[in-house]
């Protein structure tokens, strides 16, 4: 059996209140050690308050060839952005 440690994707919350963001990957034998390694590798400059680790193999990605069908429909939904609505000036800032 291969002794190569599996690959993990690392997500870090930079400050309280922000989303976890993907910062990179690393190798570790299991999740617990991946967290420790992530602390040592990706927060050397005090970059984080919380860490998520996910086995890279567990990620299901959208297929690049479906990029059109997946994302283009929402481009045409002009009614979602707030600029779609005309609010009379008298009403004030909204």
């Amino acid at each position: 059996m291969s002794s190569e440690w599996p690959l993990w994707e690392i997500f870090i919350r930079g400050q309280h209140g922000l989303n976890h963001r993907h910062v990179g990957s690393l190798h570790a034998p299991d999740a617990e050690m991946a967290v420790k390694h992530a602390r040592d590798v990706y927060t050397r400059r005090n970059e984080g308050v919380s860490i998520w680790v996910v086995p890279s193999a567990a990620i299901t990605a959208s297929s690049p060839s479906e990029k059109g069908p997946l994302f283009e429909p929402s481009n045409s939904k002009v009614y979602r952005p707030p600029t779609f609505f005309d609010i009379p000036e008298e009403v004030g800032k909204m």
């Binding site: 690393l26 190798h27 040592d40 590798v41």
Partner: peptide, 11 residues
């Protein structure tokens, strides 16, 4: 023995 460990030891 492995990069991750190299970095941890330096810390």
């Amino acid at each position: 023995p492995v990069l991750e460990e190299d970095i941890a030891l330096a810390n």
